[in-house]
Amino acid sequence: MVNEQDIYQALAAVSDPEVPVLSILDLGIVRQVSINENEVVITITPTYSGCPAMDVIATNIRMVLLSKGIKSIRIENQLSPAWTTDWMSFEGKKKLADYGIAPPTRKAKQSLGLFEEDMVPCPKCGSHNTEMTSAFGATACKSLYRCKSCLEPFEHFKCH
């Protein structure tokens, strides 16, 4: 009989297709795992409403659980409470920085004023002398920055 710990271990192998260095557990999108008599229910929450990775993630969860011999799987999508980068694991933030993406720097609960910008240290040289070049990046979860010390551009996983 499969237990919750086995399921979480399996889910740790499912990565975010857009930021493959992160697992879905690092991202904090797995909200609940419950094992009923005849099925396993995984409750996930989308990062952004239009995130195209969510369908891929749901398929990959099925695949990895099937490979563990679990055949009856239900994936529930839960919108509230809305996903926040505050749920990202410490480990996840470290992986992002090692990968070259500046992780979220503050709690999303402390929201910025309309025209305030986050001060984000460069993930390559650590300099705080950086500037935002665009609030929007290659995926909904990231914005674009430039380091004025080492002159390298980098991505920032924004506080959301």
Binding site: Y48, S49, G50, T133, S134
Partner: peptide, 20 residues
């Protein structure tokens, strides 16, 4: 390019909200 990406991101948010 940055503004092209910005509008595509914003459009995607709206379409995702529409889907829900």
């Amino acid at each position: 390019l940055e503004q092209d990406i910005a509008l595509s991101n914003i459009a995607l948010d709206h379409i995702g909200q529409a889907r829900s």
